[in-house]
Amino acid sequence: MLVMGEVHTGLLQNSGEISESTCRQVLGLMTGETVRVSRRPIVHALSPERLTGVDCALPTASRSRVRGVGTVVSRCAVTGGRVAQGSSYVRLVRSEADRRLPWSHYLARPGVVEVLGKAKAADLAEGFTGDSAPGCLNLGAVSGRFLDLVQASPLLDRRAPFKIPRTSLRWVAETGEPSIRFTLHTEQERTLRLTHPGPFTPAVVDLCEDLATHDWLLTSLLVIVERARIGGTPGAQAAARLAPAIDHLMHLWMPAARVEEWLTPFWESLERRPGFTRQWRSLVDRVRDQVAMNALALLSATAEAGRR
């Protein structure tokens, strides 16, 4: 029917970025299963997947009661040794039975939630991306918990260079005529509706996680620039407040680096409108210009002092 997921993204709670080998340890949630690491163009580490069994109501826009039974797939990721993610998704499939089957049935279908009762895909998609209803399947709670797991790792010193909120991206993917809709809700909540050609593959999840990473980077850089109060505070003070962005965020922008070829058109369409990279570049330029201006001011002040 459709696939839905939620990604939570936050700043890894460590003073500096962590090395590839530390990434492997932090993400080694299950003994015996390896952490997948890709090094180019940016170090990206992905934990083994874990399952959570669910038997609960599914959110619907019409508020009709629909029951889902199955398992949620979750995983954690660390990008650039700096950005941490908890990500969960389920594939909704109409159940062939009219009651709950033995758990062995669901365990043989990891990441599939079977829908009991009458339900329309559109109703479920609307319900999932709308206001979260209490008592329904809450993938955000699962993803948040997995992100907590990473952040609570004893290998991290918890002395993050700045405080910044997590963001959540709730997404729904269906098969059909290609389209993508990315919506900002509150300061921290985003939704994504994606219609892709051909059947679902885990590459779609990679795309959503990649989008979530970049949306978080952009959101966080905006917050840091706002906190710097450029123009409202002395130049040196503003430049000092911008420093964490230079030290920890500005080198992490690698849009679509891990997105499969057939899904790149979706990224490209978001680059045209609203234009993620366009906004990112203008912010980065602004930060650099501020720092350069401040350096100039310092230089001329030193020269002035030398002449006296």
Binding site: G10, L11, Q13, G144, R145, D148, Q151, A152, R158, A160, K163, I164, P165, R166
Partner: peptide, 12 residues
């Protein structure tokens, strides 16, 4: 623990 840990991530 979960609540305080999360709040510490985003609040000074």
């Amino acid at each position: 623990v979960q609540l305080l840990g999360r709040l510490d991530e985003e609040f000074d």
